[in-house]
Design a protein around this nucleic acid. Structure first.
Length: 480
RNA sequence: GUCCCCUUCGUUUAGUGGUCUAGGACAUCGGGUUUUCAUCUCGACAACAGGGGUUCGAACCCCCUAGGGGAUGCCA
């Protein structure tokens, strides 16, 4: 079994394509198939090397490995379509020689007119077939006019094309309904996707074509080409598309759709892969947070949903938070450091053991890796800025009372119980209770009204830092 | 317009003729825990698109309608 992922390098790897790449990967892993990466860069105007590079980086980040591709080579290369033009040319010539394709001298403008005419008359194919059976004289006339021909594939009338799709089951097309003779080679000699995909899949020995359902209506064309060339066709599996919350095909206006942006925002690749796998699929047990190997063992083409799924950013976030909390300590620590730096913290200025303790504690409060700064701040910044509400609290009567005695209380407690007993001793000392007790205690240590458990916070900070905090806030907010 | 695909809670799914007064997860709302927020936990709300068949019986099979999506490119 051999599968492929064939992106066109015209932008970033997008969630929809990532899903195709991921499903192909999961299936490949499940069945021990080869995974081919093929770059479909025949749109010369839009294809860029940078895009190719970033797509490969994103795939790697997702954990996808390919056994053949433009970077690693393989027996069926080259793996960029732009490097295979000679191959395609041989087949084009063969199709023309066999009468299965022909030169078309119609200009783009003339095609435009035909399109309008087809719409007006209700004709199902845009092309009106003018060059289908051109006389040699007409041909010479067009050539002398300097027209550069395209090559069109000749579609036989009233042919039934049956696709036994692994996801959609049986889909039947009639050759009269697929748009008429279509262009397989442009007038500049560059062949077109719908045509060369067939050649590449055959030459690269792809057995299973797993792709988005937007390609389903291209499939009859490809099958016809395969037949004309005498090729055996691959098995097809067309996956339902991923939609935005307005049920339109997921695109930029729905928010972040490029994989690279997810990485930057602090999503874990494992969470993204897990979530994307669950789009259109569910495990037998109903569990949703699954190890990759469990997904691989359970997922299959015939249990993927036929209907499109809306991408739910909130659920992805929830899943990401779960992954952050459960992740291996050393690994998540290393992953979180750059996000902390990006948030403006100089990580080399902290004691490593302390920093690690802070990060591993704070990660429990993060939905995204990029949340780490916000949560670690109370441990890493000594001279904390406070918001207006917290400042008011510290300036209020209970705030003042607590600021005054907090230092003493801390001194009086010993190392074993300073964190756990702090609030209670303040309570005994001041007679305050409830919110008036707890909130100022929290504020005088963390500078915040909300946050992790106060005793935990104090333990992480350590006794010395707690004392410094009390002093600092005292100096700042205690009325003279 | 035409062709193709699809249609279970707001979202994602379970469900393959009786076990369905339709199950889980996210979201939302409420209770508990946390004298905070989050986590955790308990609970509530909430769906078979509509209409016809077939059948003793239909979310499940068939047909029609409606809605959504995709394609209809010298894009992929």
């Amino acid at each position: 079994m051999r599968v492929r992922f064939a992106p066109s390098p015209t932008g970033f790897l997008h969630i929809g394509n990532a899903r195709t790449a991921i499903i192909n990967y999961l299936i490949a892993k499940k069945y021990g198939a080869d995974y081919i990466l093929r770059v479909e860069d025949t749109d010369m105007e839009r294809s860029t090397k940078e895009s190719e590079k970033s797509i490969m980086e994103d795939l790697k980040w997702l954990g996808i490995e390919w056994s053949e591709g433009p970077d690693v080579g393989g027996d069926c290369g080259p793996y960029r379509q732009s490097e295979r033009f000679d191959i395609y040319k041989t087949y084009s010539e063969k199709l023309i020689a066999d009468g299965k394709a022909y030169y078309c001298y119609c200009s783009s403008e003339e095609i435009e007119d035909m399109r309008a005419d087809a719409a007006a008359t209700g004709r199902t194919s845009t092309y009106n077939g003018r060059c289908r059976n051109l006389s040699e004289a007409d041909r010479q006339k067009f050539i002398s006019e300097g027209r550069k021909p395209t090559i069109r594939f000749r579609i036989e009338e009233n042919q039934q094309i049956i696709i036994d799709d692994l996801i959609k089951d049986k889909v039947i097309f009639n050759s009269d309904n697929i748009g008429g003779d279509f262009i397989i080679v442009r007038s500049d000699g560059v062949p077109v996707y719908n045509y060369i995909v067939v050649i590449d899949d055959l030459l690269m020995k792809v057995t299973h074509v797993i792709r988005g359902e937007d390609h389903l209506s291209n499939t009859p064309k490809q099958i016809l080409i395969a037949e004309a060339l005498g090729f055996e066709r691959p098995v097809y599996a067309h996956m339902a598309l991923v939609m935005g919350d307005d049920k339109k095909k997921l695109s930029k206006r729905h928010g972040i759709t490029s994989v690279a942006l997810y990485r930057e925002e602090g999503y874990l690749s494992e969470a993204l892969v897990n979530y994307i796998s669950m789009l259109g699929w569910a495990s037998a047990s109903g569990e949703e947070i699954l190890k990759l190997e469990d997904i691989i063992s359970q997922i299959d083409l015939d249990n993927l949903a036929k209907s499109a799924a809306v991408f739910d950013f909130k659920k992805l976030k929830w899943m990401n938070a779960n992954y952050i909390r459960a992740y291996d300590e050393n690994l998540i620590y290393k992953m979180l450091l750059p996000f902390l730096e990006k948030a403006g913290f100089k990580i080399e200025s902290y004691d490593e053991a302390y920093l690690k303790k802070v990060i591993l504690f704070s990660r429990n409060y993060c939905e995204l890796l990029s949340d780490i700064g916000r949560h670690a701040e109370i441990f890493l910044t000594n001279e904390l800025e406070v918001d207006g509400e917290t400042a008011d609290l510290l300036k209020s009567e209970p705030g003042q009372i607590i600021i005054k005695c907090a230092g003493d209380v801390l001194d009086q407690l010993n190392d074993d119980n300073y964190a756990d007993d702090f609030v209670n001793v303040v309570k005994d000392r001041t007679g305050l209770k409830g919110k008036n007790l707890f909130m100022p205690c929290r504020a005088v240590i963390s500078g915040r009204m909300h946050g992790p458990d106060l005793a935990d916070t104090m333990k992480i900070l350590g006794r010395g830092k707690c004392a410094e905090r009390i002093k600092y806030f005292g100096g700042k907010y205690l009325a003279k």
